[in-house]
Design a protein around this nucleic acid. Structure first.
Length: 618
DNA sequence: GAGTTTGAAACT
DNA sequence: CAGTTTCAAACTC
């Protein structure tokens, strides 16, 4: 397992060549290694923290993540404090000594410029911290080539000028405007008092602690785990949009914001920025990832405009058509499940149902928090991965082959695979297709024609459509694909919006590489938990990006850090069958026909404890 | 908008 | 673990 230092070195080395080495920002950035850092997080601790049933434990012992972050924060404190001053210092403290800093962190209104939405659970995400810091540095240090530095750094991160450009632009824009994205109420607007950093002034200490903790371990479902804490303010979320992957994240935000501010919840994203940049309960920048993701999400978010469709269906479709895919608001129409089963998209996504939902007898609301948590726990006990992202990504596939980024995203696969019989995996009935990924050997589908990649490993070919199982796969179907991913031509389905989190799966599949990891956002399916462990607050941010970056940085890992380091599944990468699109479990790798597969991929999950479960594993 | 189809989730 | 039922999304008309 890589040590944080290693990652730092990796990232920092190249950057160190820059002339701006002495820049606080430079140092700060160089030392940022969110990805690596997170990887090293002991799973046990992570799981522990995830245990929503036992919030106390969480507070009692800050997990590794906290430490990691602490380190990170420390660095910030050291390197940036000088330039940024107390403003940064406070943030640095967050990770260091949660218990001690809780008060300082949230109870002290004095902090200015703090991007943190923390207390009120604003939607801001950590990414803003970096921006903010940079901003501050720029102001105070007057570094002439600040922008250059940023550009260089971001390029490093992104791996390409074009990618980094977006980031740089964002930074510039921010610095130029001088505006601070603040959390107040999760709005991106600067309407909130700039000086208010901690929105959660009124928050209880426990909440603060929790917030801190969350900063260290960000997961989508995190909010669930701390009933009574930051959720104390739970109320019906006024917000309407929740990115799937963020899970209760936003809900938490809503709750928090409710208590702390009157700022309208706007996860509703009237602007992309809101989504991408503020969608987090934790304002603290955890890493470059955050920043990167924030940037990445930026464009995507644009599309995310809160709307109140007349009906759930319309809303849903609208979002889908807009290309938002699952990254758009979750809403359900549950009638019998009380929104307490995985049938419910909201519940499955780890988010509370909100106004736009048309569910009946819904229990998936803050007021029924206990029920929700209990149910979640139960479900997780049955299937630890129940709330895990359905699509996993293969880092191996990340290796791009050529410039064709429009090809099938072999890099991602549905964790369990589908079982389609009639849809030919060409409709959203198919989870693989829905997730924007190709089918794999994990799938038991019949007549697979998945436009994102067929089970047999063949790439999608329009000409072949007609041949599949004699079923009529017509242009209409093709249209479906387009609808799914407006951005990509039917013939070249891109996992443009893959499920937020995707586990890396080794794949030899020829479908592999084409996809540029920098492109997709994660609109995919719901994500859950573990991914958020890394950056729960980045809810609206694309996890894909994070993973991608991670992969780029560290070739050692095929798996998302969370899984990689936190679970037995870590070995999955090594378990790749020749055909291998299939994700094998660590201990199952020896056999091709894993239980997982035999079961249709359902029950096998039980044997995969690795996935950070919200449920206490004691 | 109502009804149908589909396949995941849940149950037996 | 396989088969069946339930469920709600996806889809069609």
């Amino acid at each position: 397992m890589d040590t944080p230092q290693k990652s730092i070195t990796q990232i920092g080395t190249p950057v160190s060549k820059l002339k701006s080495e002495d820049s606080p920002v430079f140092n700060y950035i160089c030392n940022l290694s969110p990805i690596k850092t997170l990887k090293s997080i002991p799973i046990a601790q992570t799981l522990s923290s995830l245990n929503f049933t036992s919030p106390p434990s969480v507070f009692s012992s800050p997990h590794a993540v906290s430490h990691k972050e602490s380190r990170f924060r420390s660095q910030i404190n050291k390197d940036v404090a000088a330039s940024v001053g107390e403003e940064v210092e406070e943030e640095a403290l967050i990770g260091n000594e949660p218990s001690q800093n809780v008060k300082n962190d949230f109870s002290t209104p004095k902090v200015s410029n703090d991007v943190r939405g923390g207390g009120n659970g604003s939607c801001e995400d950590g990414g803003m911290d970096l921006l903010k810091i940079c901003d501050n540095v720029k102001k105070k240090s007057d570094t002439p080539d600040w922008e250059t530095l940023i550009a260089a750094t971001t390029e490093l991160i992104y791996g390409s000028p074009s990618e980094s450009e977006a980031f740089s632009c964002l930074l510039k824009r921010r610095s130029n405007s001088g505006a601070r994205v603040r959390g107040g109420g999760g709005t991106m607007s600067t309407s909130a008092p700039v000086s208010s950093t901690v929105v959660g002034n009124n928050e209880t200490e426990s909440f603060d602690a929790n917030s801190i903790l969350h900063r260290g371990v960000r997961r989508r479902c995190l909010d669930f785990e701390v009933p009574g804490n930051n959720q104390q303010t739970l109320g019906e979320s006024s917000s309407s949009c929740v990115v799937p992957s963020i899970g209760l994240h936003l809900n938490a935000i809503a709750m928090s914001s409710k208590e702390n501010n009157n700022v309208p919840n706007e996860y509703s994203l009237s602007g992309n920025v809101k989504v991408g940049l503020q969608s987090s309960t934790s304002p603290v920048l955890h890493s470059q990832q955050d920043a990167v993701q924030a940037v990445e999400e930026f464009p995507k978010s644009l599309a995310l405009v809160k709307m109140k469709p007349a009906s759930p269906k319309k809303k849903r479709r609208k979002s889908e058509q807009s290309g938002e895919g699952e990254s758009s608001c979750k809403r359900c129409n549950c009638k019998k499940s009380k929104c307490l089963k995985l049938y419910c998209e909201c519940f499955a996504a780890g988010v509370y149902c909100i106004e736009p939902c048309s569910c009946i007898d819904c229990f998936n609301k803050p007021i029924h928090e206990d029920v929700v948590l209990a149910t979640r726990k139960q479900i997780e006990s049955r299937n630890p991965l129940a709330f895990a992202p359905k699509v996993i990504r293969n880092s191996d596939s990340i290796i791009e082959v050529g410039d064709d980024t429009s090809k099938t995203p072999a890099s991602a696969r549905h964790k369990r695979g589908c079982n389609c019989k009639k849809s030919n995996c060409l409709k959203k009935y198919c989870e693989c297709y829905q997730g924007g990924v190709g089918c794999s050997i994990n799938c038991r589908c019949e007549g697979c024609k998945n436009a994102f990649g067929r089970k047999d490993g063949s790439l999608f070919e329009q000409d072949e459509e007609n041949e599949v199982s004699g079923k009529r796969v017509t242009a209409k179907t093709q249209q479906n694909a387009e609808l799914f991913n407006p951005v990509a031509p039917p013939s070249t389905p891109i996992p443009y919006r893959q499920p937020l989190s995707q586990l890396a799966i080794s794949s030899n599949n020829r479908l592999l590489p084409p996809v540029s990891h920098f492109h997709h956002g994660a609109s995919g399916s719901s994500s859950s938990g573990i991914y958020n462990i890394r950056k729960p607050d980045m809810s609206m941010v694309s996890h894909s990006r994070i993973e991608t970056i991670t992969e780029d940085i560290d070739d050692d890992d095929d798996m998302p850090e969370n899984l990689l380091n936190h679970s037995p599944m870590t070995n999955m990468k090594a378990v790749v069958s020749p055909n291998s699109k299939r994700v094998s479990l660590p201990h199952l790798d020896s056999s091709e026909e894993t239980p997982w597969r035999r079961n249709g991929g359902r029950k096998l999950i039980h044997s995969i404890p690795s996935f950070p479960s919200l449920t206490p594993h004691h």
